[in-house]
Nucleic acid binder design. Structure first.
Length: 854
RNA sequence: GCCCACGUGGUGGAAUGGUAGACACAAGAGACUUAAAAUCUCUGGGAUUAAUAGUCCGUGCCGGUUCGAGUCCGGCCGUGGGUACCA
């Protein structure tokens, strides 16, 4: 054999790892444990290149940690409940269960050839009854501790299909299948009381040292702590029972700039008014004919209707303000009613200008007293401004000082109270769908809502369901739905809502520590393996999934499923990798609906795309997240088949920094393969060299080797895989040209193989074996660099004049600053650049640079 | 709309506030070869220039801080992610 043949090497080593159970995680108190986890995939059916990128990164960390003496847990599973399975059942027939498990088998088969260091014995899918049964047990314990409750909430309702739509299924206000205008409808739904933990979830962000700052910021903003004032307006001309309107504001300091009171169309007063006022009813109806998504609501034109009701200003009973129903006021935040100060809020200003409402300044910038025109004056709360309208007689003060003064005034005079509010809402977990974890409660006419008995868990999904009618099949399944009340035994009905799939992914990491336990978790296993030391996944999960998981850990602790010994935070370190994007190729059907084409159906010429089949031109939507429904998914199978797993792994790690999005292009995969072939050949060449001894001339190579060990180690530890790979390229170039002794070259190729082993484990094992290594390279200790080999005696410094590089000097490393300065000023180019002038200043940064300031 | 990122050669990208373009891809030239493949060597931001000597310009745009800014600050523009029922 004289050529690098991945197809022979890779299966061989995978089998060997399997036989020796190299990646099986077993508790061992004598070694430090390390839990590496990549966000588990949704089994869409095809592994795509983004998955390969994600799992390869995790694998590099796992293998690296293994060789630095850690007892590594690296599991894999499937986030298997969710809408696509039901959509497939509706579109092509079949059953979500078959579809899902079929996809899992397919994806596992695609994943295994990658040679990931996964302990497959721990694998599970969230749709396994063994998993969701334990989840039901967790739910019951949460319910028991008051962490779950029911209340009304709005959903997107498709009046033609008679079904609840996800936000994703609403396309510009219409249902994606029926095309009907979507309505908002209230249903009684289950909620987790995550808001109880808002303060804690916010404060604990500070503890997350190894999380990206951007994720922490996003979470903090999402929780959105604010200190504000809650107070009431006394109404004039309002119906009985509406003597007051409660409002919450974060800017009570601008109260003297008030112009109107805005209430949500879902506010009780608005709801009452619509029963007796046709115009308001029509307006409210219009407001409700909109998807429930925040983005849609915020982007909609600001609209309102005057209710005719007026309120008294709390600081001046003679001053009356109109009450409007406004489409931008959210019922879910604060009290569902606001007072508007157009001078200092752009949204209020736009609204006021549109409806000719008063605009009144309350403060000006210190050096500019122009009244507000079409742009609201909204300085940061920390900026000093000049108050012209404040009841406490403020002169120059910051917004924050004014807010504090206002709250103090309100509390001491009894017209309002300071309130800390959070933007974070409770987590609605009810889904009116079949393919999810059934909520284990029963509705009984006499006993009300009754928790299912734990011994009856899991409450299994019935298999005999059909998807030929819209809506939740569980609702139509009489024999499943009808049951006996666990409390009184009378005929009762099961809850037919299932759980949000985010519930499934909020504790799977804990279940991996004891996937077969008869309770949700096993305390000993959990205590040994938790927390996850390194969590890796897409930044698209920066808020919801991570926040829900953080909440679940707290709830599990409260219910005794996680010991106090574990920190409340599940993930010690987080790395958010970028997405792999690809252009979408799109044409339109006759009715205007889009048709998406696979990259391989399309031919590119001069920045335009054409269908290979019939030559029609295709629209290109650049850089879009790979999505199965858009057919822009690139699957890695071809690269693996052609070049092998090591090439695919090496290739996805090279070039692009892991946290950044990459536009996928396969050009370069071949080059990666050639490189691995080169390394393999070097190993063979070195193996055939006659043995000899180290000489002084080997120093260059060995020095380079130690530098490479240092740089690659640092690169792996800091997720700088692309930079680490660049160093490995350099070192390989050096080694392939080296004239050093056989001993030095052998040491170098072994070290190179070890440094590459987390990325290209199969090739590395092969070289290790060639060079006579014992055992697996996967279990060999990581190379350590020798500091003494990195000491440089001379250093080359650039010399700048006014920040522009003019010359270079090579000097002894520890030369005195004054000497360096002298040398720099003697440089011809420096003298020329100074044009005879004396330097004003010379800055010498030791070992870095010299800058002469003229 | 709001929150968070990102923007550097033909391309992917490198650069603790300290020589911008490491390393690679694609390209061009050359060596080897009957030829091709493979392999190896060299070139390469732009302008000016005989020059691998210099000089000037250059990290989305405008401004600022600094001896020195791709990097820090402010304001724009563009792209991406999230926006609570996509996962």
């Amino acid at each position: 054999m004289s050529r690098y043949l991945a197809a022979e090497i890779e299966p061989k080593w995978q089998k060997a790892w399997d036989n020796f159970e190299v990646f099986k995680a077993v508790r061992d108190e004598n070694r430090p444990k390390y839990y590496v986890l990549e966000m588990f995939p949704y089994p869409s059916g095809k592994l795509h290149i983004g998955h390969v990128r994600n799992y390869t990164m995790g694998d590099v960390i796992a293998r690296y940690k293994m060789s630095t003496g850690h007892n590594v847990l690296h599991p894999m599973g499937w986030d298997a409940f969710g809408m696509p399975a039901e959509n497939a059942a509706m579109a092509i027939g079949g059953h979500p269960k078959e579809w899902t498990y079929g996809n899992i088998n397919q994806m596992r088969q695609q994943m295994k050839p990658l040679g990931l260091s996964i302990d497959w014995s721990r694998e599970f899918a969230t749709c396994d009854p063994e998993y969701y049964g334990q989840q039901q047990a967790l739910f019951l314990d949460f319910l028991n501790k008051g962490l779950v409750y029911r209340k009304n909430a709005v959903v997107n309702w498709d009046p033609v299909d008679m079904t609840v739509l996800a936000n994703e299924q609403v396309e510009s206000g219409r249902g994606w299948r029926s095309g009907a205008l979507v309505e908002r409808r209230e249903l009684t739904q289950w909620f987790f009381k995550i808001s109880d933990y808002a303060g804690d979830l916010l404060d604990a962000i500070d503890v997350l040292d190894d999380w990206p700052a951007k994720v922490k910021l996003m979470q903090a903003n999402w929780i959105g702590k604010s200190r504000g004032l809650e107070f009431s307006f006394e109404t004039i001309g309002a119906p009985d029972g509406f003597d007051e309107i409660d409002v919450y504001t974060t800017r009570p300091d601008t109260l003297l700039g008030a112009s109107f009171v805005g209430i949500s169309s879902d506010h009780p007063l608005a709801r009452y008014l619509e029963t007796e006022n046709r115009d308001i009813a029509a307006f409210n109806k219009e407001c409700r004919q909109m998807s429930t998504s925040e983005a849609d609501m915020e982007k909609a034109d600001k609209k309102g209707i005057d209710t005719g009701i007026r309120v008294r200003h709390p600081l001046n009973p003679a001053w009356e303000l109109p009450v409007w129903v406004a489409n931008f006021v959210l019922m879910d935040y604060g009290t569902g009613a606001i007072f508007a100060c157009p001078a200092h809020d752009q949204r209020d200003l736009d609204f006021s200008l549109k409806y000719n409402l008063e605009v009144k300044d309350t403060f000006f910038a210190l050096e500019n007293e122009t009244p507000v025109g079409t742009k609201a004056f909204v300085p940061p709360k920390s900026e000093k401004v000049r108050w012209i309208n404040h009841f406490a007689g403020l002169g120059v003060a910051t917004g924050q000082e004014a807010i504090d003064a206002t709250i103090t005034h309100a509390e001491s005079h009894g017209w309002g109270k300071g309130v800390t509010n959070y933007r974070l809402r409770d987590w609605g977990l009810s889904r009116q769908r079949y393919w999810g974890c059934p909520i284990p409660v029963v509705h009984c006419v006499t006993c009300g809502v009754v928790p299912e008995k734990k011994e009856n868990l899991p409450i299994r999904l019935p298999d005999d369901v059909t998807f030929d009618k819209p809506g939740n099949p569980l609702n139509r399944h009489a024999t499943w739905r009808d049951c006996a009340c666990p409390s009184c035994g009378a005929p009762a009905q099961r809850e037919t809502d299932t759980m949000d799939t985010f519930v499934d992914s909020s504790w799977y990491f804990a279940r991996f520590t004891s996937p077969d336990a008869a309770t949700p978790t096993d305390q000993e296993d959990l205590n040994y393996w938790m927390n996850v030391d390194q969590y890796i996944g897409g930044v698209e999960h920066a808020i919801l999934h991570l926040l829900y998981s953080r909440f679940f850990c707290r709830a599990m602790q409260l219910t005794g499923h996680a010991n106090q010994k574990n920190a409340q935070e599940p993930f010690n370190a987080l790395f958010t990798q970028g997405m792999v994007t690809h252009a979408i190729f799109k044409t339109a059907k006759d009715d205007g609906r889009p048709v998406y084409h696979y990259p391989e159906e399309v031919e590119l010429r001069e920045n335009k795309a054409y269908l290979i089949a019939d030559g029609r031109e295709v629209d290109i939507v650049p850089s879009s997240k790979m999505s199965k429904s858009k057919n822009n998914v690139v699957d890695p199978e071809r690269i693996i088949e052609q070049y092998g797993a090591d090439t695919a792994r090496w290739f996805v790690l090279s070039d692009s920094p892991p946290e950044r999005d990459v536009e996928w292009t396969a050009s370069g995969a071949e080059a990666a393969y050639k490189f691995l072939g080169r390394v393999w050949l070097i190993s063979h060449r070195v193996a055939q060299m006659p043995s000899d001894e180290l000489t002084d001339s080997d120093n260059d190579l060995l020095q380079e080797m130690h530098k490479t060990i240092r740089d690659v180690t640092l690169g792996i530890e800091s997720f700088g895989f692309n930079a680490a790979i660049a160093k490995l390229y350099s070192f390989t170039n050096t080694l392939s040209k080296s004239k050093a002794s056989a001993v030095a070259q052998k040491l170098s190729i072994i070290t190179l193989a070890q440094l590459m082993s987390p990325m290209t484990p199969h090739l590395a094992e092969d070289i290790w074996q060639h060079q006579g290594g014992t055992g697996f390279i996967a279990q060999a200790p990581w190379p350590v660099f020798d500091k003494n080999m990195l000491v440089e005696t001379t250093v080359t410094l650039p010399v700048q004049v006014n920040g522009k590089r003019r010359a270079e000097i090579t000097i002894a490393k520890d030369l005195e600053k004054s000497e360096v300065e002298k040398l720099a000023l003697m440089q011809e180019a420096v003298i020329r650049a100074l044009e005879g002038a004396d330097p004003k200043k010379v800055i010498v940064v030791p070992g870095r640079i010299v800058n002469v300031v003229a």
